[in-house]
Computed example of a mutant assay.
Amino acid sequence: MSGYALSLDGIIGLSIQKNVKIKNQANVVKISVTVVSLMFAISLITNTLSIITFSQPKTRDVGCGTYLLFSSIISLLTITIFSAKFIYLLMTQIMMNPNRPAMNVSCILLEFLLKFLSTTGEWLNAVVAIERALTVALGATFNTYKKTSASIAKYVFILVLLINIITSIHDPIYRRLIDDRIEERTWCAITYQNRPWLKYYTSTLNSIHFIIPFAINVVSAILIIIKSGRAKSNAQTDQPYRQILKKQLIKQKHLIISPLILVILASPRLIISFVYVCMKSTREPYLFLFGYFISYLPFVTPFLIFVLPSETYKKECLTGIKKLSRRH
């Protein structure tokens, strides 16, 4: 069970009782069912609203809107696969004699899709943070690059998608079903036996996919704050810098809130992933569950992170909803 990192299999797998109904399962299992159901329901609503918002032409005048449209679609797919993965785990651990070929296909396919979709979503959010930082840094000069930004956004998305697929392609190759005769269970896991390089390669990639987008969001938020304050202080020399900076924080809140929320939500997973390594012990499942579920919150709440802080996006969301209501 070691090497699972933050995996639902390792957190609650041993707590799932064979041939026992959900209502009679352990509390940690019932809580997981409730949380996953809520996450899927909320994701369906918020991601649909985000897709409606960023489907409006005005939101895609620059590349940022296009990235957020793709990010909303990826987020909806991620939570859908995440929910399917949870159902798969319950079924395979509760059933006494599950279908082996079906288990094998689900094991390989679901894990691969969940892995590359989640990292793709994180990188798209990082690209959004980069473009927003450039918008503030370039100021009025950015207007000349608007059309270029919008036109290359689709190609950047394809590039991000391909990179994440390539860096995740080893997962279905080395992933397989493993029979645990001691616990009398079957696990879906990557086998590191006789391949020590694979363990370090996977750990390195996981760190890169997490730490770099995390760092980009942190740096982008800081740059937006500093650059906004400096630009206005140069124009208004009679006002103190702190006062100008405060005004800019309020004015540019929609650009700053998003990366800060993403950083806050990512921090628990970073801490738990590096502090707790062996998942064999189930003495603290709630701590692991907290870290696991919170890492998927950015895919559940893109509407709250990107749309609500922006007056422009909120107006376009209402416009999109009105258009849909007229059609139906």
Rank of each mutant, 00 (worst) to 15 (best):
1 M>S: 14
13 G>D: 06
18 K>M: 15
36 V>E: 08
37 S>W: 12
39 M>Q: 14
43 S>W: 01
54 F>G: 07
58 K>P: 02
60 R>C: 11
60 R>H: 02
65 G>K: 13
65 G>T: 13
68 L>K: 12
72 S>V: 03
75 S>A: 15
77 L>Y: 07
79 I>L: 09
79 I>S: 01
91 M>S: 12
105 V>R: 14
110 L>S: 03
110 L>T: 02
121 G>C: 00
121 G>H: 01
124 L>A: 09
127 V>Y: 12
131 E>D: 10
131 E>W: 05
132 R>S: 01
134 L>F: 13
135 T>C: 06
139 G>W: 00
141 T>W: 05
144 T>K: 04
144 T>C: 01
146 K>T: 07
150 A>Y: 04
161 L>S: 12
167 T>P: 01
173 I>H: 07
175 R>N: 11
177 L>V: 07
177 L>C: 06
177 L>Y: 07
182 I>M: 05
183 E>P: 02
187 W>E: 13
190 I>M: 08
195 R>Y: 07
212 I>W: 04
214 F>C: 03
216 I>W: 03
218 V>Q: 03
222 I>H: 11
226 I>F: 08
228 S>Q: 01
234 N>D: 14
236 Q>T: 11
240 P>Q: 02
240 P>I: 04
241 Y>T: 04
256 I>D: 06
260 L>I: 15
284 E>I: 12
287 L>G: 09
297 L>H: 04
304 L>F: 15
306 F>Q: 13
308 L>N: 06
313 Y>L: 01
314 K>P: 03
316 E>H: 14
318 L>E: 04
324 L>A: 08
